[in-house]
């Protein structure tokens, strides 16, 4: 995950990124880059046959969006669970 640190300040081609991590296989680096790109933390630019990567400052806003999704999903499940609970102990319409 040091990849993100590497590309934070300037753009790097994928080959050079891979070269910085000799202990990691090329496919593994590609996988990491794909995850980072899908997470919106790095952006990819193609130049000829090369792929260049750099960190995206907009990632911050997306972090908040992810957190909002986290709680939104949670509250949606809370709603289901609490309404179910309310029905159970509700006035004579419970399952018991």
């Amino acid at each position: 995950m040091a990849i993100l640190r590497l590309v934070r300040d300037r753009e790097y081609p994928s080959g050079e990124i891979a070269a910085r991590f000799p202990d990691v296989t090329g496919p593994a680096i590609s996988q990491h880059l794909r995850v980072l790109r899908e997470a919106g933390l790095v952006e990819e630019r193609r130049s000829g046959t090369r792929r260049l990567y750099r960190a995206r400052p907009e990632g911050l806003a997306e972090l908040r969006a992810l957190l909002r999704d986290f709680w939104d999903e949670g509250l949606a499940q809370l709603k289901d669970a609490a309404e179910d609970q309310q029905r159970r102990k509700g006035s004579g319409r419970g399952r018991q």
Binding site: R64, R68, A76, K79, A82, Q86
Partner: peptide
């Protein structure tokens, strides 16, 4: 971050 919902 602010999230809101209404629960019955």
């Amino acid at each position: 971050v602010i999230c809101e919902t209404v629960i019955a």
